[in-house]
Amino acid sequence: MKNKLSGFAVPYVVWMALVVVIPILIMAVYSVTTADFDLTGENFTRMGAYVSVFARSFELAIIATLVCLLMGYPMAYLMAKEGPGFQRVAMALIMLPMWMNFLLRTYSWMSILENNGLLNQFFSRIGLIDLVNHIGLALAADPSQYIPITHFQMIGTSGAVVLGMVYNYLPFMILPIYSVIVKLDHSLLEAAHDLGSNNITVFRRVIFPLSLPGVLSGVTMVFVPSVSTFAISRLLGGGTHMMLGDLIEQQFLGGAYDPHLGAAISMVMMVIVVVCMVVMNHFGEGEEQAVML
């Protein structure tokens, strides 16, 4: 390893110092000071009030990551196994939504999920809502007490938030897994077949373990933005499901103006995320080297 930096590295070192290191240091200072910049630990103790926000954020982010993994892995696997024609089309379809504005995409979901949005109109048109009311009426202990529904509540639920996360971040799960599987040495699969494995065993004992590095980076790339998102939870969660991102935003821009508390929350979130990643990478260490091969 060369320890001396070459001249070409200087601009990057300066850049990283300016936009990464210094801001983090500023944030760290904010997190341990009061409004008058006196040293205090109060910011962290005050955070106790928001434990439920932390829990909800991590819960929804974990669910969204799992859903992305369950949907993304088979998709990535299929793409890698099919011919180049399918790969090109699938790739274009996966990338296309990413080129559209993030807010536009999320607003579109709002108009789909709203109480009188596209989906509910559709359900009512095909008689699904009437059907539910019929069944509800029939099953109700006291039919006079039964309140018929006019729509399904979709917007403003945790499900809508998870949906928004999955929709926005699924490509970040598919692409790294795909790129690992597509590069797998075909002779390894032949060798596994040759040694007596059927297709399922080949997948279980060769393809899946060797694709874990892709899974790890996919999980990271979905989980980290999910846990800190604020637009998705605000727009699709209807403000009822406050998440860490919303909380932090409120401390800086919202009514609860308190950048010191916001900085402290950000620091804690960062530490938790880093710990999660370190633990995960530790599990995937062996496979990480496999990819380097």
């Binding site: 002779s187 032949e190 596994a192 040759d194 040694l195 007596g196 494995s197 060797l210």
Partner: peptide
Amino acid sequence: PPHKRTINTVFQKYALFPH
């Protein structure tokens, strides 16, 4: 299929499982 033949192969580039 290969996995049902009592034949085994030594591949040109070995194809050892890196994991």
